[in-house]
Design a protein around this nucleic acid. Structure first.
Lengths: 162, 162
DNA sequence: CTTAAAAAAATGCATATTCATATTTTTCTT
DNA sequence: AAGAAAAATATGAATATGCATTTTTTTAAG
């Protein structure tokens, strides 16, 4: 432990180990990290993967919808999409009905990459869950998360099925 | 819905709504967002908040330990810490026993800010859980996350109690 | 005991991100 | 119907981040 007193009695109870937000962030990072490495090896950044995954589930979303679903700040998403557009992975079209909006679609190439990554993500998920939870626990965890998201995010999960 | 065919039959099953990694990231974002706004109002960025929280639980960690616990890339953490050092929120000292390492401590001022934010975070957590889950569900969710982290992260949660 | 390999932290530089704001279009008010 | 307010994107400029590399120190190998 060395010379530093790493354990001087901090005021009060231990915090992080029982703090939901920390547990969620940590679990999220652990669960995703090795897949993100795979995606990077395929030339796709985390932000781009999120866009691909969202569009693969529901193509043609607007920038704002996509930003919400992919948890990205709007101007950041605009630029992520721009790069993906330049590489030919997505296309944008201004909406006819509401010309403020811009909808985003996967191109053929983008859809191919997305299909491939989604398949790998599914496999990775299975493997990951097996590595740390029983199947029943995995299901319970997902169910709790869905409920949390439904209630806290006002139907964010269902939004993707529209 | 407009003129865009938002629902062209994408190949295969819906993906995100049942993808653990997406559910975790989304839940994490929803759970933390409004607290992060509070922290920002107090002049503390998300990265800084994580450092404060980690040190408040276990002061004097090394840069690498802290990076792991706070889920930050090492060189990023080095610079976050540097800024916090300049503002007088933390201090760094090279380790006597292993002079490669640099340990980080809260200053008096930093500790004050941390105490305040930790208290607010606890309150926010309580309020958040109440808003979307029953107390029992909250406990079960935490327990599942702890298990996941223990198994997938090789004791990451316990690491903070050392 | 000497040299090679590994570990920890810092840094340069290219790129990405954020924040505030501008622009365009739509919706609301009266 | 006119004008104000709101909504959706985009963009400029300051800042932050990631990646590869460097430096220093420690550990391992022969």
């Amino acid at each position: 432990m060395s010379d530093h007193e790493r354990d001087k009695p901090e005021t009060g109870e231990p915090f992080l180990a029982d703090y939901l937000q920390f547990l969620l962030a940590t679990a999220s990072g652990l669960a995703s990290h090795s897949f993100h490495v795979q995606a990077a090896a395929a030339g796709v950044s985390v932000a781009e993967w999120r866009v691909l995954a969202c569009l693969s589930d529901c193509d043609g979303q607007s920038v704002t919808e996509l930003a919400r679903l992919a948890q990205m700040e709007q101007s950041r998403l605009t630029r992520v999409i721009e790069r993906m557009d330049n590489r030919g992975h997505v296309t944008r079209k201004r909406c006819r009905d509401d010309r403020r909006k811009v909808h985003v679609w996967l191109t053929g190439q983008g859809a191919g990459i997305a299909r491939d990554l989604v398949a790998r993500a599914r496999a990775h998920e299975t493997e990951f869950i097996e590595s740390c939870l029983s199947p029943a626990e995995g299901r319970r965890l997902k169910a709790l998360l869905v409920k949390l998201i439904e209630r806290a995010g006002k139907g964010k999960v269902h939004a993707i099925r529209r």
